[in-house]
């Protein structure tokens, strides 16, 4: 699985192209010149300590977060900004942002299902009001999307009646319903009970095996090791290591990465190594 398509595809255009992106909250730099290309069918996991800027980077990719410098291109189009007549960079119109955002699906840590709508209602909303499909068509799309995450029988439930894992699977289905080219997943399992993480990871694995392009911010090193073509390690808003998971996890070259992995191993060890 881990054979990286990006290496064999030097001639192919990236679907997401992050160039020198900088973002500050006040005087604090959250992203400090990030360059990252995501190629079609690639699974990229972004890992790093909390506060390293990984979620911010992901949120910048679909412009839920503004950035100060640099450019992010989605399918070749700059997202979030345009140049006005005087050559100044200004925020793009909401309609343009929505258009450029179209190839991107997003899954949030907190699921963000709308609690006043049923599962069907949540999934049908965008097909109906963005793609202007009929209720019948949208319902069929919802059924198919739920099949992909194995929750057909929950179609008429309200989110409050589902477990966290099921809610996150519905959130994934809601995104899949629009057939995005890339899925952005922002710590999709971080707010789940440990026992519910597996079902969400299984859905993500199925997506990855189905050829979906994915950018995953995660603390699930197991998923990253098994499924990622490329692991990107972010610290203090900078990419300090990037490569196939074997290289990142087995021969960490950067001291900060080595330290991060050591602390992860200590936390996840069931007992102290005897020697």
């Amino acid at each position: 699985m881990n054979a990286s398509p990006s290496q064999q595809r030097s001639g192919i255009a990236p679907i997401i192209d992050v160039q020198g992106v900088t973002k500050r909250f006040g005087s604090q730099g959250v992203l400090n010149g990030v360059d990252l290309k995501i190629f079609p069918s690639e699974v990229v996991c972004i890992v790093g300590p909390s506060g390293s800027g990984k979620s911010t980077l992901l949120r910048c990719m679909n412009f839920l977060e503004e950035y100060d410098e640099g450019e992010i291109y989605v399918a070749g189009q700059l997202i979030g900004y345009r140049t006005d007549r005087s050559g100044q960079r200004v925020r793009d119109t909401e309609a343009n942002i929505a258009r450029v955002r179209k190839p991107l699906g997003m899954v949030f840590q907190q699921f963000n299902l709308w609690p006043h709508m049923t599962v069907a209602g949540n999934i049908m909303e965008a097909p109906r009001y963005v793609q202007k499909r009929s209720a019948g068509e949208a319902r069929a799309i919802a059924e198919r999307a739920l099949e992909q995450v194995g929750l057909q029988d929950k179609i008429d439930e309200y989110p409050a009646r589902l477990s966290g894992g099921q809610q996150q699977r519905v959130a994934i289905a809601r995104s899949l319903a629009l057939a995005p080219e890339v899925m952005l997943l922002d710590e999709p399992t971080s707010s789940l009970d440990p026992e519910l993480v597996g079902e969400v990871l299984a859905v993500m694995k199925a997506m990855a095996l189905g050829g979906m392009t994915m950018v995953v911010v995660t603390h699930e090193m197991g998923f990253a090791a098994q499924m990622a073509h490329r692991v990107v390690f972010l610290d203090h808003g900078k990419i300090i290591a990037s490569g196939p998971p074997q290289a990142i996890f087995q021969k960490p070259e950067h001291p900060r990465l080595e330290q991060f992995l050591r602390s992860w191993k200590e936390r996840n060890a069931l007992w102290e190594p005897s020697s």
Partner: peptide
């Protein structure tokens, strides 16, 4: 109304008025 509900709407490409009428308003009513 949690910001995340609005962000989910934006990420799915819903228009601002749709988000207002169909997500924020019903949540606010509660």
């Amino acid at each position: 109304v949690p910001v995340g509900y609005i962000e989910a709407g934006k990420a799915l490409g819903l228009r601002r008025t749709t988000i207002m009428m169909r997500i924020i308003l019903p949540q606010m009513l509660v």
